[in-house]
């Protein structure tokens, strides 16, 4: 087992444990902090795949901006403990069963796909994750979607202000 495999399994275990902790922690603020840890683990995976631009953008946008927005809203509402009623064990059980069967179904589907057997992912090498090729592709082939996404941002900003002002 070389270093890359050890890093992969460590980051995966870290991500999955943190994701489970997002679900089972009672305090919403703790959930946000665990979700930030998930995003850091996923950024570690991006670095492992040599997608450096996406790793940094993931930390800046998700862990830096979006999760801080979540924290602001939770602290603004002052939702300390979950006021979830106690009598919903049946719903939890059914939800876990449904999600588990979804996971089992997808894994069984992937396992019998012949196109994916023996394919490997290029770790640590390759240049497509660097800023130079990504910027070139973004501003030549994808310049129209890029501009449209700026319009989307503008409309989202206007919508958030209008909804918040009511």
């Amino acid at each position: 087992m070389n270093t890359l495999e050890i890093l992969f399994y460590a980051l995966s275990a870290f991500a999955i444990v943190s994701a489970v902790m997002v679900l089972i922690s009672k305090n919403p603020i703790h959930s946000v902090l665990w979700l930030i840890l998930v995003f850091f683990a996923i950024s570690g995976h991006y670095i492992l795949l040599n997608a450096q631009f996406l790793a940094i953008v993931n930390i800046i946008v998700y862990a830096g901006a979006i999760m801080v927005l979540f924290l602001f809203v939770i602290m603004l509402m002052n939702v300390k403990k979950d006021q979830e009623p106690k009598k919903q064990h049946l719903v939890k059980f059914i939800g876990v069963i449904a999600g588990g069967s979804f996971l089992t179904l997808l894994i069984a589907l992937v396992k019998q796909t012949s196109q994916l057997q023996g394919k490997t992912v290029l770790l640590k090498e390759g240049t497509i994750g660097l800023i130079h090729p990504l910027g070139k592709a973004l501003f030549s082939d994808y310049v129209v979607p890029f501009e449209i996404s700026s319009v989307l941002f503008l409309s989202a900003m206007v919508g958030a202000v209008i909804i918040g002002k009511k």
């Binding site: 890359l4 876990v96 023996g118």
Partner: peptide, 20 residues
């Protein structure tokens, strides 16, 4: 690293999201 490992990891994370 086989692609299947990544697929299993992402399916697990996705299912945890669905359960949530």
């Amino acid at each position: 690293m086989p692609i299947l490992n990544y697929i299993y990891l992402c399916l697990t994370l996705f299912s945890i999201g669905v359960i949530g």
